[in-house]
C-alpha cells in the first residue's frame, strides 16, 4: 500500500487528538481531557454528516435532529433508570437503562427510523428544497422538545450520573475519552469501507450526475436514502455520547444552530475528506477556547476563517495540508 500525503496528515491529526488528553492526564488537567472528548464527539457527528453531505452530496441542514434524538434517547433512558420509573408499564414493562451498550443501539435505531421518514420525504426534492425540508423537520422536533414538559421542556433534562460501560470506570475522564475516540475511529473506518465499496461508487456517481444513473440501471433515490440513514445513525451516536459527557440534554442539541455547527466541522476540515470533520471539530473547539478568551465575538472571526476556506480552499484544512506544490 502506498502512503499518500493524506494518510500522513490523517495520522498526524489522530495522533494530536490522542496526545492532548494523555498529556493533560499527566498534568492533572481534567478540563482539557473533557475538551478533547468534546472534539472526538463533535468529530463523530461530523463524520456522520460527511457521509451524506460530502460523499452523498445531500446538503442536510437538519442533522441536529439526529444529534438531539441520540441525546434525548440517552437522557430519557438514564433518567427513568435512575428514578426506578418504568418507561412503559402495561401488559409488559419496559425499564430505562444506564448501560451504554444498550443505550447506543437504541439511540441509533430510533434516529434511524426518524431518518427513514425524514429522508424519504425530503429526498423527493433536491437542492434548496431539500435543505429547507431537512431544516423544517429538525425544527419541528426542536419545538416539540421545547413544549414537551415530561422531559424538562425548554430547560432540558439532567441525569446526575454518567451511564455505565462494562469493566470501565466512566467517571474517569480519560476512560470516557478512550470510549469516544474508539467509536470515532470505528466510524471513520466504516466510512472508508463504505466509500470504496460498490455502494460508495454508485453513491459518488449519483452525487455527480443523478440523471445518468438511471440510464445504467441504478435508482439514485435508494442510494441517497440509505446513506442519509447511515449518516443520521452516526450523528445520533455522537448525540448520545454528548449527552453523557454533559449528563444533560436540552433542546439546544436539536436546534438549527447545532446543524450549522456540525456542517462547519465538515466544511472547515474538508468536505469529502475522511478525517475532515475531525480536523474541523478540533479547530472549532480550539477557536472557541483561544479566541473566546479574547473576544465574546469569536464566532465572528471563525466566520471569516470559514469564508476564506469556502472561497479559497474548498478541500478545507485537510485539503490545504495535502495540497502538492503545483496543484491549484
Amino acid at each position: 500500500m502506498n502512503i499518500t500525503r493524506e494518510t500522513v496528515v490523517n495520522s498526524a491529526v489522530l495522533a494530536l487528538l490522542v496526545l492532548v488528553p494523555v498529556v493533560a492526564q499527566l498534568r492533572g488537567d481534567p478540563f482539557t481531557i473533557t475538551l478533547a472528548t468534546k472534539v472526538a464527539i463533535f468529530a463523530l457527528a461530523g463524520v456522520g454528516l460527511n457521509l451524506a453531505l460530502g460523499f452523498g452530496g445531500l446538503i442536510s441542514f437538519g442533522h441536529a435532529a439526529f444529534f438531539g434524538i441520540g441525546g434525548y434517547v440517552t437522557g430519557i433512558l438514564a433518567s427513568h433508570a435512575a428514578n426506578y420509573e418504568p418507561l412503559f408499564d402495561g401488559a409488559f414493562t419496559v425499564n430505562g437503562t444506564q448501560q451504554m451498550l444498550l443505550i447506543w443501539p437504541i439511540a441509533i435505531v430510533v434516529a434511524g427510523l426518524f431518518a427513514v421518514v425524514i429522508g424519504a420525504l425530503s429526498l423527493r426534492t433536491s437542492g434548496v428544497f431539500f435543505i429547507m425540508l431537512t431544516l423544517a423537520f429538525s425544527q419541528m422536533i426542536y419545538y416539540f422538545a421545547v413544549s414537551w414538559p415530561s422531559y424538562g421542556g425548554e430547560d432540558g433534562l439532567s441525569f446526575y450520573t454518567r451511564n455505565q460501560f462494562p469493566e470501565l470506570n466512566m467517571f474517569d475522564p480519560l476512560n470516557y475519552f478512550w470510549v469516544c475516540f474508539t467509536l470515532l475511529i470505528l466510524a471513520v473506518g466504516l466510512s472508508a469501507m463504505i466509500t470504496r465499496s460498490r455502494f460508495g461508487l454508485a453513491l459518488g456517481g449519483a452525487r455527480q450526475n443523478p440523471q445518468r444513473m438511471a440510464s445504467i440501471g441504478i435508482r439514485p433515490f435508494w442510494l441517497s436514502l440509505t446513506i442519509f440513514v447511515i449518516s443520521a445513525m452516526m450523528t445520533a451516536l455522537a448525540g448520545s455520547l454528548y449527552a453523557d459527557l454533559n449528563r444533560f440534554v436540552s433542546p439546544a442539541m436539536l436546534n438549527w444552530h447545532m446543524s450549522g455547527e456540525i456542517m462547519v466541522f465538515v466544511i472547515l476540515g474538508g468536505n469529502r475528506r475522511l478525517l475532515g470533520p475531525v480536523a474541523g471539530a478540533g479547530l472549532y473547539i480550539l477557536a472557541e477556547h483561544l479566541l473566546g478568551q479574547f473576544s465574546d465575538y469569536w464566532q465572528f472571526f471563525l466566520g471569516l476563517v470559514l469564508l476564506a476556506v469556502v472561497l479559497f480552499a474548498p478541500g478545507g484544512v485537510i485539503g490545504i495540508l495535502t495540497r502538492r506544490r503545483g496543484d491549484v
Binding site: M193, I194, L201
Partner: peptide, 22 residues
C-alpha cells in the same frame, strides 16, 4: 470507475458495502 459503475449497474448489485469495488 465510470465503466465499473456501469458494469455494476448492469449486474444490479449496488448495495455491497464491504468489498472495495475497484
Amino acid at each position: 470507475q465510470n465503466v465499473v459503475l456501469a458494469v455494476q449497474g448492469a449486474q444490479g448489485r449496488s448495495f455491497g458495502f464491504f468489498r472495495p469495488a475497484l
